[in-house]
Amino acid sequence: MASSQSDLMRLLESLRTADGVETIPINQAWPELSLTAIDLLAWMRSLLLDAQLTAAEPKKLRHRLLNAAACVNRGASRLRLRISAIWSWRHELTTAFARLADLPRPAT
């Protein structure tokens, strides 16, 4: 465990002192990451989820959707998400992915 902690500290130190990259103090990075996660959850609720899950708390979303009983498989230059047939929230997750695929692509 000490080895992984020292590896993490070395990585964070290298990120903080990387050449050509604007340095972000570690204490400022965590709030930024937390706010980004909150934004992603809010957009997911408004664009991808049904009415029942739109008002769900983050804990409920984490339990029902983000901790999916699934496996990522690679084949024929494609990634596939295989969702367990007995998982009770599989329909909500597949609906969310279908809605995500149907969103218009941003203009470049």
Rank of each mutant, 00 (worst) to 15 (best):
L49T: 03
T23W: 02
W30Y: 09
R99H: 12
A85Q: 05
P104S: 15
A98S: 10
R62C: 03
G75P: 02
L49W: 05
L47R: 15
A51T: 14
R105Y: 01
S6P: 01
L53S: 11
L40K: 06
L33E: 11
I38S: 14
S77I: 02
L65M: 06
D7L: 09
A51N: 14
R74F: 11
I83R: 00
S84M: 07
L48Q: 14
L40I: 15
A76H: 13
L48C: 13
I38D: 14
A69K: 14
T17L: 10
L103N: 08
C71Q: 07
L100H: 07
L79P: 02
D102R: 12
E13W: 05
L41C: 10
I26E: 08
L11N: 08
P31E: 07
L12Q: 14
L61K: 04
R99T: 10
E22K: 11
R45H: 03
A70G: 13
L66S: 07
L12C: 10
T108K: 09
K59Q: 08
G20C: 13
E13N: 12
A37I: 09
L100F: 14
P25C: 09
L100E: 05
W43H: 13
T95Y: 08
A37P: 05
W43Y: 09
K59I: 06
V21Q: 08
R99W: 02
W89H: 15
A18I: 06
E22T: 13
L15D: 00
I24P: 00
L79K: 04
D50H: 14
L49Y: 01
G75F: 07
L100V: 01
A42Y: 11
